[in-house]
Every structure is written in structure tokens, then in C-alpha cells.
Computed example of a mutant assay.
Amino acid sequence: MAFLTEGDLPTYYPAAVKMSEDDKKKYLSRANAYAFGIVGGIPTYSVQLPEAQIKAAVALAFEILAEGQDAQTNSVNGNITEAAPTGFYVRKASDPLAVVDKMLLPYKSAFESQNTASAENGVIFL
């Protein structure tokens, strides 16, 4: 099961309509896998944690992964090159997916709390 399906992708990331089917599948599977790795599983959605918000986070991960790959691949020879010359005026986030991590944090907490046995909540001293 995926957080974001290919049918949902145009709603959350309209620029994906222009992408090739192979690229869509590749980056969508990577974005879903990334989100699944952060959250740990599929949480139970609620009013406080709606499904639409996690889909938006996965769409952002999709966008970051797709842009990062396309910007660094030379279209002529396929070699990976720098997206921009390094220097003082170049601003680049050290970890662009950190924003996605923060968006997924409530879902991770909810998933962990739903799947924690009562014995794991504390320690009993005898």
C-alpha cells in the first residue's frame, strides 16, 4: 500500500503530468518508500491527522527527489554534474528532505503510539 498513488499525483503535484511514465513510477516509489521509512507504516488517519496531509508530504518528497535528480544529470552524456557552481552566493539546503521529515513526524508518532504494547510504556522495578 502506498501513501500517494499515481492517480493522486496530478492533484498534489500537477507538473507530474508532463513527466514520462517511467520517471513518475520511479520517483513515486522512492517518495513513498522514503515516507514509509520515516513513519514506519500506515497510520490510522483521523481528523487531526488526515490522509490528505501525508499525501502532500509525499508529493513534496516526490518533487524534491525528481528535481534533485534532473538538475544534476547531464542530458547529453548522462553524467552526474553539479547543479550549480559552488561559491559564497549559492544557497542550497543541506538536507532538503528535512522539511518532509517534519511534516511526517506527527504520523510517525501516531503510528508508534498505535503499535506500542502496554509493556513497552515503562519499567517496573521489583
Rank of each mutant, 00 (worst) to 15 (best):
L9H: 07
D22Y: 15
A52Y: 09
L28G: 07
A66V: 07
E63Q: 14
S29T: 15
L49C: 07
Y34N: 07
L105G: 00
Y89A: 11
S29G: 12
Y13P: 01
S29I: 11
S109H: 06
Y107F: 15
A110L: 05
G122W: 04
S94V: 08
S46C: 10
N79D: 09
Q72F: 01
T44Q: 14
D70M: 07
Q69N: 11
P106D: 00
Y45T: 13
S75N: 05
E112Y: 08
L105W: 05
Y45C: 07
M1E: 09
G122A: 12
F62E: 03
L65H: 06
N115M: 08
Y89N: 10
Y13T: 01
L126M: 10
A117M: 14
K26D: 12
A59C: 06
V47P: 00
K18H: 02
D70P: 00
V100P: 05
Y13F: 13
V47N: 02
A98W: 04
E63L: 11
V47R: 10
A31T: 13
V99I: 13
K25C: 01
I42P: 00
S20A: 12
D101C: 04
V76A: 04
Y13N: 02
N79W: 05
V58L: 05
T73A: 03
P85E: 10
A2W: 14
A2S: 13
V123P: 01
I42M: 15
K18W: 00
V99N: 03
A71N: 06
V47Y: 08
G37N: 15
F88V: 13
F3W: 10
A57H: 05
S94G: 09
L4E: 05
Q114P: 03
A93W: 07
R30E: 15
V123I: 14
